[in-house]
Amino acid sequence: MTIRTLLADDEAVVRAGVRAILAVVPEIEVVAEAGDGRQAIDLAQRLRPDVALLDIQMPGVDGLTATTEIVRTVPGTSVLVLTTFGNDLRIARAFGGGACGFLLKAGDPRELITAVHAAADGAAYLSPAVARRVLTKLGGAGRMARIAAAHDRIAALTGREREVLALLGAGMSNGEIARRLHVVEGTVKTHVSTILTRLGVRNRVQAALVAYEAGLVEETP
């Protein structure tokens, strides 16, 4: 299956770099490029790509606004947000915007490819580096309170649901989780739906953050 991808960044050199990384994967096709958020929204609505890769900081309509609008008007398109270490608080704000993943522009190219595959498969992808950075930025006493709250929230989950949440937090798709746990994919979908409800979160990325804060996901260096 071809993963039709939209790429949006106001820097042509960044778009060229991302496009070159994705070009080595036969099943990923960049179908359009945008230099700002407004153009990204228009292209997403017209072309309905499987995945949209959006820079979080663009002139005019920024990546946060574009993410929210694309998720609202093109529900079949999964949005991945590209960011830098300087945008931590914007990342934190974007968790509620419906993006299915966050990764660093300067990160490992393999992360980008993994994230696109995960997004196309309906999974969340939260770069470990981004997760650590955001949780640290929001740290201090508030961090300790969130860790305690996360442990309280996962207490409502069954053992199997915690296993699913941990794998979800590690960026696995429903299919990958099903194979890991030796169950059918429909069972995983049911578990994920129940997990989101019991945790009181809107999407898989927010659930992934809970998994990180509760210590269910092993952080890689």
Rank of each mutant, 00 (worst) to 15 (best):
I3E: 07
L6K: 10
E11Y: 13
V13I: 14
V14P: 14
G17F: 04
V18T: 07
A20V: 00
I21C: 06
A23C: 00
V24Y: 08
P26Q: 07
E27R: 07
I28A: 04
E29Y: 01
A32N: 09
A34N: 08
G37M: 13
R38I: 00
A40V: 01
I41S: 01
I41W: 04
L43H: 10
L43Q: 13
A44H: 12
L47G: 03
L47A: 09
P49A: 11
A52W: 14
Q57N: 11
M58H: 10
V61C: 08
G63C: 07
T65W: 13
A66T: 10
R72Y: 12
T73V: 10
L82N: 08
T83Q: 08
G86E: 13
D88V: 15
D88Q: 13
I91S: 06
A94R: 12
G97Q: 15
L104W: 02
A106M: 08
G107Y: 04
G107I: 05
R110M: 10
I113T: 15
V116H: 09
V116K: 01
V116Q: 01
A123P: 09
A124D: 03
P128G: 04
V134T: 12
L138Y: 01
G140Y: 02
A148F: 03
A150G: 09
R153L: 14
R153W: 02
T158C: 05
A166G: 12
L168G: 04
G171H: 02
M172D: 03
N174I: 00
G175F: 01
E176Q: 14
R180E: 15
R180N: 11
T187W: 11
K189N: 11
K189Q: 12
H191R: 02
T194I: 07
L196H: 03
R198F: 00
L199N: 07
R202K: 14
R204E: 13
R204I: 00
V205C: 10
Q206Y: 05
A211I: 08
A211R: 06
Y212G: 02
Y212F: 15
L216Y: 10
T220R: 11
